Amino acid sequence: MSGIALSRLAQERKAWRKDHPFGFVAVPTKNPDGTMNLMNWECAIPGKKGTPWEGGLFKLRMLFKDDYPSSPPKCKFEPPLFHPNVYPSGTVCLSILEEDKDWRPAITIKQILLGIQELLNEPNIQDPAQAEAYTIYCQNRVEYEKRVRAQAKKFAPS
């Protein structure tokens, strides 16, 4: 494992614990031996107030490669969400998460999670990743928002 990646992720964890947006979660997972795995984080993004996503808490896994922060983490909703920019596998399609697009090593975990929260309610229809959600979003916004509200209710924190 890269010392650069681990040191950056340790800084990220410290900064997150000191200050993070209300309702968001970002925690490194534990290895079988109980030690912390900084390369694999369990996160959760709350649906934004005043949107059909409100009330939901959407679980996301963030996986970092050894060359982080040169390369972005892979962000994957578990379980996958109904959304035009979420692949059926759950992987998020967002330009700041793509090395050859808008990724920059200075982007923080907090910025990534806030960017994904923004994307939930403002899909990028130029870059669809899920045919069904994309089609319904474009053709029947009322039905799309109904499905999103049902999903938010399903993923409401207990």
Rank of each mutant, 00 (worst) to 15 (best):
E12L: 05
A10N: 14
P128V: 00
V148K: 01
L119F: 15
W103C: 00
Y68N: 01
L6V: 11
S70D: 06
N31W: 10
L113N: 05
G50L: 10
L97R: 03
A131Y: 11
H83A: 03
E143C: 11
T51Q: 14
G55I: 08
P84S: 01
F22C: 02
L63R: 12
A26F: 13
C138T: 15
E145C: 08
D102T: 06
Q11D: 12
E12M: 06
V27E: 04
G56S: 02
I116G: 05
Q126D: 10
Q139I: 08
D67T: 10
V27L: 12
V86N: 00
A26V: 02
F64V: 12
I109K: 00
I107Y: 06
P69W: 06
P72C: 11
K74R: 14
M36R: 10
Q11M: 13
I109E: 02
K49C: 07
E12K: 03
A10V: 11
E54K: 08
H20P: 00
W103Y: 15
G90E: 00
D67R: 08
A5Q: 13
F155Y: 12
D66H: 12
P105W: 03
C43V: 15
R104N: 02
P105G: 10
P157S: 12
K146I: 11
H20T: 03
V148D: 00
D67L: 07
G3Q: 05
S95G: 02
N40H: 14
G23D: 01
I109V: 12
D102Q: 00
P157G: 10
L94D: 07
W41D: 00
I45V: 15
R17H: 01
D66S: 10
P105S: 11
F22E: 01
R141C: 11
K30R: 14
G56A: 05
G55D: 14
Y144T: 00
L81G: 04
A15I: 10
R13I: 03
E99R: 10
N85K: 03
C138Y: 00
L57I: 10
L114Y: 12
L119T: 01
K49G: 14
Q117T: 12
C43S: 10
Y87E: 04
P73Q: 02
K14G: 03
N121D: 14
I45W: 07
D67Q: 10
K14E: 03
E145D: 13
I116C: 15
A133R: 04
S95Y: 06
L60F: 15
K74D: 15
M36Q: 03
R13S: 02
D102K: 07
K76T: 15
K18E: 05
K18Q: 09
E143H: 10
F22Q: 04
L6P: 07
I136C: 09
I112W: 04
Q130W: 13
R104W: 04
W41G: 01
W16D: 01
L114W: 13
K49M: 09
R147L: 14
W16C: 07
F24D: 12
T135M: 10
A26E: 02
Y68D: 00
W16S: 05
N85V: 06
G34M: 08
E78R: 14
V92P: 08
K110C: 06
V86A: 08
E54V: 09
R61V: 10
D127W: 01
Q130P: 00
N121T: 12
L38Q: 00
T51D: 03
Q111E: 12
G47V: 00
C93A: 05
P69R: 01
Q111R: 15
K48C: 06
T51I: 03
L9H: 01
M39F: 13
Y137S: 03
I109T: 07
M62T: 09
R141E: 03
I107W: 01
R17Y: 00
D66V: 07
Q117R: 11
P128E: 03
P157I: 05
G50Y: 14
P80S: 10
I116Q: 06
K76D: 15
P105Y: 03
A133Q: 03
I136Q: 12
E54D: 06
S70A: 13
N140Y: 08
L57T: 07
I109W: 08
I125A: 08
P80N: 13
P28V: 06
L94Y: 04
V25K: 09
A152C: 04
C93W: 00
I107A: 13
A150Q: 15
A26W: 09
P128D: 04
D100L: 12
I125R: 02
Q11S: 11
Q117W: 08
K30C: 04
A5S: 13
D67N: 11
A152D: 00
G23F: 03
N37Q: 14
N37K: 13
L57R: 11
A15W: 08
A129Y: 06
D66W: 07
P123N: 01
F64L: 11
V25A: 10
L119N: 04
Q151R: 00
K153G: 02
R17V: 00
R104D: 06
I112E: 04
L113A: 13
P157T: 11
P73F: 03
D102F: 08
P80T: 12
E99H: 07
H83C: 03
L63V: 14
C75H: 04
C138W: 08
N85F: 09
I4L: 08
V148W: 03
W41T: 01
A129G: 04
G23N: 11
W53A: 01
E54H: 08
E42H: 07
E145F: 09
Q139M: 12
A15R: 11
G115L: 01
F155V: 12
V25F: 11
Y68R: 08
S158L: 12
Y68Q: 00
E98M: 13
P128G: 13
A26S: 10
L60C: 14
T51Y: 04
Q139C: 10
R8L: 15
I45R: 06
F64Q: 06
L120F: 06
D19Q: 01
E145M: 11
H83K: 05
R104Y: 01
P72T: 05
R13E: 03
G56F: 00
K49S: 04
P123D: 01
F77R: 03
K30I: 10
